[in-house]
Design a protein around this nucleic acid. Structure first.
Lengths: 199, 199
DNA sequence: CTTTATCTTCATAATTTTTTCAAAATTTGT
DNA sequence: ACAAATTTTGAAAAAATTATGAAGATAAAG
């Protein structure tokens, strides 16, 4: 899949938002239902008449009736405020995946490339064979580079439910991953865990 | 996360409070259960019918039954009076964090930037490596710049429960932090402790 | 069933961090 | 300026954490 920049609209003026949406290459719209001027519903309708851009509807109202209305109008998903920024990100990712704009099974970090679909690890076109546990750990790290993961979090990535295994096991997996990727992508953060970072 | 002013309601009249909550951009409500006029529970119910604003319930009743009631009605947290102002602040911060309105993991002071999520310290885009104890101390100082912290308070920041370690240990940590950040952000207040301040 | 690969644990070595200590330097109040 | 109290600092001991090789346990494959 071609690499691409994701563009989005986040605007406090309805007319301008519509104009931007229709006249630019936009991948996703996060739409607040309560805009000054036109309502979010009207914006959605106007945009949809012309272009079929994925839309995440954001609203303060929380009744089921509202949910149904919003989805019927054609928004691709619907969240009720207050909502954490992280949740919004998750929803947008899901929408973009559905629309085929991004591939969540693939992660690239520097010259490292992981693909869950084919269970493949490449480093500059050179294939690396990792075991399942090793792959899952590296994938989790690569999904959020620079973020520190505790051993417990990494255990969650390799055991489905709350199976109980020792923290030391993660150390061993990390050791083996490091040996297979010659360069040391994984940095240990003393007392906390591991992260994927070069510096 | 965008910087923003936090707005709150603290009012002695239930009807006015409801009116204010519904017709203004409010981020959080601190609600006393015993209001003249309508009860706090009723206010909460009325507000929640329309808007989903985070609510901290404040009450004199202390039975478990009350706690359950309050939470069921939809308040996000619940404290029993008497309560210190500081505790209220802590609770509100926790609520706002949960609601995604503030990010407690990040602190910025002048050209100093701490991020707990990435366990990262930057000073004007230059990364600094701190140990866990050093990070916790600097984080606590940076969270409340200009506030003087005793060595005992700083010990609390690096030891989970009341582990007993010497005051001199803090001196050493401060020394090491100062060495790593070249500029001296930390000012010692003779006879009291340390604070983060330039003047 | 046997063999092989993978996962996990364990013990020890290596590393890093935390804490203490004591002498030197600084600050404060008289 | 002096004495008392407090802080700074470098060095070293103590504690905690991580790396590693080897070996046992488990699962997968032939």
């Amino acid at each position: 899949m071609k690499k691409r920049v994701l563009r989005y609209i986040l605007h406090d003026n309805a007319e301008k938002a519509i104009d931007l949406a229709l006249n630019n290459e936009i991948d996703c719209i996060i739409l607040d239902r309560m805009l000054p001027g036109l309502s979010g519903d009207e914006v959605l309708k106007k945009v949809r008449e012309i272009k079929n851009i994925p839309v995440l509807m954001l609203t303060a109202k929380g009744s089921d009736q509202d949910k149904i209305e919003g989805l019927l109008l054609g928004s691709d998903d619907y969240v009720v405020k207050p909502v954490t920024p992280y949740e919004v990100i998750l929803r947008v990712r899901a929408i973009l995946k559905r629309a085929g704009l991004i591939n969540l099974d693939k992660v690239i970090y520097k010259d490292l490339e992981l693909d869950r679909k084919y269970f493949l690890v490449k480093i500059k076109d050179e294939k690396i064979d990792l075991t399942k546990a090793e792959f899952e750990i590296l994938f989790k790290l690569a999904q959020n580079p620079k973020v520190v993961f505790t051993r417990e979090q990494l255990i969650d990535a390799i055991t489905p439910d709350g199976t109980i295994i020792s923290d030391r096991t993660i150390d061993t997996h990390i050791k083996n991953i490091r040996k297979k990727l010659k360069k040391d992508y994984i940095k240990t953060v003393f007392g906390l865990g591991y992260k994927l970072d070069s510096d």
